[in-house]
């Protein structure tokens, strides 16, 4: 029994969990550049799902860091509704490999939209609706500065997104 290694492993797993939760707080606050600071330069981001209608996996969004930065910088030029997205996340599993400096995690999330002007602000503002649910499949690289996201696959169970969104989930 390795009585020394186990606390270290648990600590790393906790750090991974904390990084996922911190990422959600930054996304909820629309601090997208700070969110990207949690990601490695070779980070890749995808939103995927599976369509039982056409019986195919689908990728609905795919960007690297440069693409995400560009998308974020262009947000002010685009029309959107001004509801806020709130992510409720539970990290289900963390599998870390300290020797290789890598970890992966699976989290379940529900993303709510609190409306401001999505339909009729006089009536709907302040109402919170479930926007989508799914899982985060994350991969991390761990160095002396801690874990950094190198991959996030946002796999959606919800496939009817109605008016959609311009924001990362």
């Amino acid at each position: 029994m390795n009585v020394v290694a186990k606390p270290e492993l648990k600590s790393l797993d906790d750090t991974i969990r904390e990084t996922i939760y911190r990422a959600c707080l930054l996304l909820d606050d629309e601090k997208f550049m700070e969110w990207l600071a949690l990601c490695a330069p070779d980070f890749s981001y995808r939103i995927t799902t599976y369509s039982p209608e056409i019986r195919r996996p689908m990728t609905w969004y795919e960007q690297d860091v440069a693409g995400l930065k560009g998308m974020i910088e262009m947000l002010p030029k685009h029309n959107t509704d001004h509801g806020r997205l709130t992510r409720h996340v539970t990290v289900y599993a963390v599998d870390s490999d300290p020797a290789r400096g890598e970890a992966k995690a699976t989290s379940s999330f529900a993303c709510y939209r609190t409306m401001l002007d999505g339909i009729n602000s006089h009536i709907d503002s302040g109402e919170t609706q479930l926007f989508l649910i799914g899982k985060y499949y994350d991969r991390f690289r761990i160095d002396e500065h801690g874990p950094h996201f190198i991959e996030r696959n946002v796999f959606l169970d919800t496939r009817r997104l109605d008016k959609g969104s311009h924001y990362p989930i």
Partner: peptide
């Protein structure tokens, strides 16, 4: 796509 630049805007328009 549902997260694309144009479709979201078009759908907000008819909403």
């Amino acid at each position: 796509g549902p997260f694309g630049r144009n479709l979201h805007e078009d759908l907000l328009g008819i909403t």
